[in-house]
Design a binder for these strands. Structure first.
Lengths: 227, 227
DNA sequence: TTCGCCAAAAATATCGATAAAAATTGCCCG
DNA sequence: CGGGCAATTTTTATCGATATTTTTGGCGAA
């Protein structure tokens, strides 16, 4: 053991670590919308220097999770009912496009990976938020992954993250308990492996809109909305 | 005159300046695809420290104009025929969506701005690349600006930049000389102010596909393509 | 001759300190 | 008593230096 891995995770740049951790805390709502992100403070709580923090914040700015104010530093991006609607609408357009291409192009490896990933998701208890969220995203991205359009995939991934954030802000537990989400996932999977493009698309869009409608209801008495 | 503006542009952070300059040099092809971007070197030629360079590169990474290699620094993003097609296809989907919303929602101020911006574009000679490019982008974004979807607009802007890069790589002069681009712009403008959604969309898509086809031809003997 | 290993060189990622900018507080004057 | 200016305090943005990592080139053994 060399002198450097006293408290560092194995090979991973400090920037990357900071980026992932910050992103997670914003998405899960631990850092609330509008909260100022002072480099000084973060430096202490993340045990790293100013440069990695600053770089991570720059990255998050491009993800639309952090806003940069002229020369007044960074803050957690605001949220609004309106933006939530925007995200839902964009997802229905972009994910649908990616999904159709994916279901058509996807080879055997894509199909196998999808089944595998769904298997893990279906066996994960929702109470372990960390693991559940990771597998949930993996499933949804696996659906789109064969679309042969890296830029589109990237947009979808970004929108996914933005959307999850609203799910957390609305109260994660409620939004997923009174609906059989797993049944919806299964329907999507079945349609996908059957290569039924229209059905897969229909199920996925319904899935998005269901969750969307749910969250919208929960947001009706919003504590904090954007500008 | 204070001691600080000896050689600095007025109020603008070093990061921002570096970001804009680097982006411009990548888009115009002065920095070629695959070229390594060493912080040391850039530090000298941009007359600034490592932090602003690094931050600018991070931002450009999110714009897909720069690639980051694990711990081996940055390089100018690769290009490929395939990616060019991807960009064209995505633009046809996203810009079309934004355009339709914009033409429907746009108020009087939107319309006036559009006319104004087109006026400037039409009076700009293509030989002054710098000015022409700025106004060209301004016109195309002005078309979409009333779409009430900031995230979508951002995606469109990103795709626009990626596309312009290919135009430069293919040789800017040729691709715009043998076609009456201005007539196409005018047709789009007319349809837009007439609030004819279908016509505006049709003209814009034709405009994209025309330029796209043109560039694709020029790329048929590609010097440098991506992975 | 070729392969693989070691050392030197280059470049990256990071830190600590400093200078510039903004926000805040308190004081003075109307 | 209230408003505005100015010094103080935070905080941001930037720089220069350092430690770590990757790359390169040469040397020796098979």
């Amino acid at each position: 053991m060399s002198t450097t891995d006293l408290q560092n995770q194995p090979n991973q740049s400090s920037t990357q670590r900071t980026y992932l951790k910050l992103r997670n805390e914003i998405i899960t709502g631990k850092l609330v919308p509008g909260e100022r992100l002072k480099v000084e403070t973060l430096k202490d709580s993340y045990g790293t220097g100013a440069s990695p923090i600053r770089e991570a914040l720059s990255l998050l700015t491009s993800d639309q999770l952090v806003e940069r104010l002229d020369q007044r530093g960074f803050r957690v991006a605001q949220t609004s009912r309106k933006q939530f609607g925007e995200i839902l609408d964009l997802r229905c357009t972009l994910d649908d496009k990616a999904l159709r291409q994916s279901v058509q192009n996807g080879g055997r490896d894509w199909e196998e990976n999808l089944v595998l990933v769904h298997h893990y998701l279906s066996r994960t208890d929702r109470s372990d938020a960390e693991v559940f969220e990771e597998r949930h995203k993996r499933f949804h991205m696996a659906l789109l992954e064969a679309c042969e359009s890296p830029i589109l995939l990237r947009f979808c991934s970004q929108l996914y993250d933005l959307n999850v954030r609203y799910r957390f802000l609305a109260g994660r537990s409620k939004s997923y308990s009174s609906r059989d989400v797993e049944a919806e996932h299964l329907a999507i999977l079945d349609a996908a492996v059957s290569r039924d493009v229209e059905a897969t698309s229909a199920y996925l869009m319904a899935h998005y809109r269901n969750t969307g409608g749910f969250l919208a209801e929960l947001m009706d008495a919003p504590a904090k909305t954007g500008t």
